[in-house]
């Protein structure tokens, strides 16, 4: 593996150019360009909160912002995995002609999406600033936000691992992409994005089982991570659980976040090893 890493390092220029190309191609023929990186999740969230605030009547007035804070990192993971699942197949003609370390392709997808995520966060903070200017009594910023880079790092490791595995497998069996789409959909509802982690903590099953449900729920690395993102980005005193119930924020899930970080690191290392085992077979796919 060290030899592979060394080679990858010697191709860092290519990785850089590949990311640049990835960013250029995506919005090449669109007028708004990179702004779509933020508009996409924003519209998605607006549609969801429309249903929540008008039809379901749950969530407070800033539900949209809460959803966005969790949806941005989730969307990063999702697009990384889906983009890179196709990355090898799309570049197969190139791979058949010229040698370069194949892992550059999924890695470029992850890095390009990481840039989209960062742009998303910048605009997210601009949105908070807008809220503050509109009503200076609400101060939506908080000191914990300095930990955001750590969370982004964990996200990036997790996405890298998953992308390497999925891109390698999907090259041989294109069913993988469809299976992954279903799994991502499941993962979406297993994470506190549409609802709050507090909904899980305060529901009957959890209280009866002496917080067992909440513990199991948080063992899902993505759920713990999503919860952590929310706690780091926003700091309300209490949240609206719907049906007139209010609850205090659950404490920052540090224990589970450490589990998540270790898991993400292992996933990345395993993914790299797995990809390297298969990468010579890509061009010989029967």
């Amino acid at each position: 593996m060290r030899k592979d890493l060394k080679e990858l390092w010697s191709y860092r220029e290519l990785l850089f150019v590949m990311v640049q190309r990835e960013l250029r191609i995506r919005y090449k023929n669109s007028a708004l360009g990179l702004i779509w990186s933020f508009l996409n999740p924003l519209f998605q969230v607006l549609v969801m909160s429309l249903a929540f605030s008008i039809f379901l009547k749950v969530g407070g007035k800033s539900h949209t912002v809460y959803m966005l804070s969790a949806y941005l990192p989730f969307m990063f993971f999702q697009t990384c995995v889906l983009d890179s699942s196709q990355s090898i197949l799309l570049q197969l003609p190139l791979i058949k002609k010229i040698y370069f370390p194949r892992e550059v392709l999924p890695l470029a997808c992850v890095l390009a999406n990481l840039i989209h995520l960062l742009i998303g966060f910048v605009i997210f903070f601009a949105l908070l600033l807008f809220v503050y200017i509109m009503d200076p009594r609400i101060v939506p910023f908080q000191i914990n936000t300095v930990f955001l880079p750590i969370l982004v790092l964990i996200s990036a490791m997790m996405a890298t691992g998953a992308s390497l595995i999925v891109s390698a497998l999907n090259t041989f069996y294109e069913d993988v992409k469809y299976i992954v789409t279903v799994l991502l959909n499941l993962l979406f509802y297993m994470c506190p994005i549409l609802y709050y982690a507090e909904n899980v903590a305060n529901n009957d099953t959890n209280l009866k089982s002496n917080f067992l449900l909440y513990k199991i729920y948080n063992l899902n690395p993505m759920a713990a991570l999503t919860h952590a993102y929310r706690r780091v980005l926003l700091a309300p005193k209490e949240i609206d659980l719907g049906a007139g119930l209010h609850a205090h924020w659950m404490p920052f899930p540090l224990k589970y976040l450490i589990v998540c970080a270790v898991f993400s690191f292992c996933l990345m290392v395993f993914g790299y090893w797995f990809f390297n085992r298969l990468k010579w077979k890509f061009v010989e796919r029967p």
């Binding site: 220029e13 290519l14 850089f16 150019v17 590949m18 190309r21 250029r24 191609i25 090449k28 023929n29 003609p93 190139l94 058949k96 002609k97 010229i98 370069f100």
Partner: peptide
């Protein structure tokens, strides 16, 4: 021209292809 991307300009494609073949930027 195996690695050319149709939507990018000739200039951008030169960059990409030459770097794949081992040049630095």
């Amino acid at each position: 021209g195996a690695g050319f991307h149709p939507d990018l300009t000739g200039y951008e494609n030169v960059y990409f292809n030459a770097v794949i073949l081992g040049l630095t930027r």
